[in-house]
């Protein structure tokens, strides 16, 4: 029974990892950008949630109303002012600039909030659970998973059914020709980053509600998100969800065997997929 429980918990936490991964996958899909500061932005969103909940007395989930737009605007500005200047065939500039950004964010947060672990207080939601036979499923992890599924469905819908999504796909296919159609590449890229950070905001709030977080926690989240992306297959959002679940289950099983093996088991699952199917389990099918 402990095993079944470990697996179910793993599946549910996989939703959180999928949230980490979705924003990463989105910007890679649109502009081939890998944002090394992605994890630090998730932690930043969690801290933003902390500020909103403590100063305004909001519930963490209500805080999303503020944190999502703030992060989205931050994403737009970040891309428009800074990252668009680094876009090109050379991968080094965006990589190093986002790496520098990561160091700045980590230390900025450290300066502002100290190294103490923090947590968002979700009140009764934290302990509420649904009895399922002999198992108790926590309401919060379940909610997190449902939200992750909804976010991915939403992103999928934006991608394939809206003018913005069309602009994303066209610019991703051929940025030059997209410009000839009257699409401003800089604006399209900035919109993609805004959307990515909107997802980051949701991920950050759920991270902060579920576990404690501190300024140094960004890289681990980046790595989990990245592993989910690669396991699921590049450019496939639903694959990303499966990737997150596999990662979560592997970590759950690892932790069940030995507490020190939780993360190690997740990394091993990732390396195993990389060894057997380097393109991921569900690579994007081209039209």
């Amino acid at each position: 029974m402990v095993w079944v429980n470990a697996i179910i918990q793993g599946v549910l936490i996989g939703g959180l990892y999928a949230l980490f991964a979705a924003g990463l996958s989105l910007i890679f899909g649109v502009m081939r950008l890998v944002n090394i500061a992605h994890g630090d932005l998730i932690v930043l969103a969690a801290f933003l949630g902390l500020v909103v909940t403590t100063t305004l007395g909001f519930h963490p989930l209500t805080a999303l109303v503020i944190v999502i737009p703030v992060m989205a605007i931050l994403g737009y500005v970040l891309q428009y002012v800074l990252l668009n200047r680094t876009m090109g065939s050379d991968i080094l500039p965006p990589l190093l600039v986002t790496f520098g950004l990561s160091v700045i964010l980590q230390n900025g947060l450290l300066e502002a909030f100290s190294a103490d672990p923090q947590k968002l207080n979700a009140g009764a939601l934290e302990t509420a659970s649904l009895p399922m036979g002999s198992l108790n499923i926590g309401l919060l992890p379940l909610l997190m998973f449902v939200v992750a599924v909804c976010v991915i469905a939403g992103l999928q819908w934006i991608f394939y059914n809206t003018a913005l999504g069309r602009a994303f796909r066209a610019t991703s296919d051929n940025a030059e020709i997209a410009q000839l159609m009257g699409l401003n590449k800089n604006h399209v890229f900035s919109m993609a980053m805004a959307l990515s950070l909107a997802v980051v905001a949701i991920a950050g709030i759920f991270l902060g509600t579920r576990t404690s977080f501190d300024p140094a926690g960004g890289p681990a989240r980046l790595i989990f998100g990245f592993e989910a992306v690669i396991i699921g297959g590049l450019g496939n959002l639903w694959g990303t969800l499966i990737g997150g679940i596999i990662l979560g289950v592997a970590q759950g099983i690892g932790a069940q065997i030995h507490p020190g093996w939780q993360q190690l088991a997740g990394h091993c699952a990732f390396l195993l997929v990389l060894a057997i199917r380097p393109t991921g389990l569900f690579p994007k099918v081209s039209h």
């Binding site: 069309r166 602009a167 296919d173 020709i177 699409l183 081209s286 039209h287």
Partner: peptide, 15 residues
């Protein structure tokens, strides 16, 4: 644009 359908390719022309 390979990721876009014929109609989407036309619509994006009206951007």
């Amino acid at each position: 644009f390979p990721s876009l359908s014929v109609e989407e390719n036309l619509i994006i022309g009206a951007q």
